[in-house]
Design a protein around this nucleic acid. Structure first.
Length: 241
DNA sequence: CCAGACGTTGTT
DNA sequence: GTCTGG
DNA sequence: CCAGACGTTGTT
DNA sequence: GTCTGG
């Protein structure tokens, strides 16, 4: 699944990677983005067609929610049931976005020690998670914009860590998912599959990542005490501080 | 009709 | 809001 | 996802 | 155990 991720790049670099020419938010990089926090999402403005990079709260709050407190459990949406679930159906049809990241964390289920792993693209490129967003009107009249990350079955690489993984969309799929080019629900659904195992790296990282308050580049360092796991990788050399 | 849920994950 | 359960 | 709280009364 | 907060 995807319950924690990291984004080493700042808004400027993210905007460059996603061809954003509109105004930039000042959301700082983070090595520990957690549910209920701000994440950076790419959205296509329905009228101008322009791409925007916007801060959204991670954890979708449906329009009909009475308060925003239940959001922490709506951090993921299963790709297989997007069209059925009342909480996501409308957003899937009209409010899709790309949640930007440089990688994510997984905590393997089996095992006594909950050794966290980082997962990233082998080439170090920015990641676009398939996302959905919603606007929720708070009692005071303000609008809370929130989002969720779509999950699918794990590929061979991640199956050792977890049965589910976030949907990572290739650049070619971005216009369709963002609604910049017309797509049927079936076409959109076909984008929601696991990315190829070969493009991913996974390595054990510092246990400090468990604590949301810990947030520095050192979280991504390989944990020297981690037990061997089939298909384990080394961190990208460029990331060793 | 009204009331109440509306989500994901994984657990023994 | 919209659907399900009673 | 993990970490941390989880309660009321009345007391000094 | 289960819920909330980050």
């Amino acid at each position: 699944m995807c319950g924690r991720f990291f984004q080493r790049r700042g808004p400027r670099a993210v905007a460059d990677a996603f061809d954003i020419t509109t105004q930039l938010p000042n959301t700082p990089p983070s090595w520990n983005r957690a549910p209920t926090q701000e994440v950076l999402a790419v959205r296509c403005h329905p009228e101008t067609g322009a791409r925007h990079l916007d801060p959204l709260r991670w954890g979708l709050v449906p329009r009909w929610a009475k308060d925003a407190s239940g959001a922490a459990r709506m951090i993921n949406a299963r790709a297989e049931t997007l069209t059925e679930k009342p909480a996501f159906r409308e957003a899937f049809a009209r409010r899709r976005c790309l949640v930007t990241a440089d990688g994510f964390y997984e905590w393997p289920q089996e095992g006594r020690t909950r050794q966290p792993f980082a997962v990233a693209l082998r080439d170090g490129a920015p990641i676009a998670f398939a996302g959905l967003w919603e606007g929720w009107r708070a009692p005071d009249g303000s609008i809370l914009r929130s989002c969720t990350i779509v999950t699918t079955a794990a590929n061979a690489k991640l199956a050792a860590l977890h049965p589910r993984m976030p949907v990572i969309l290739p650049q070619a799929a971005w216009p369709l998912w963002l609604g910049e080019s017309r797509a049927t629900a079936q076409e959109l659904q076909s984008l929601l599959r696991p990315c190829p195992a070969e493009v991913l790296l996974a390595w054990p990282v510092n246990l400090r990542v468990n604590k949301v308050s810990e947030n520095d580049p050192g979280l991504l360092h390989r944990d020297p005490l981690a037990l061997p796991l089939p298909g384990l990788d080394d961190p990208p050399p460029a990331w060793a501080d």
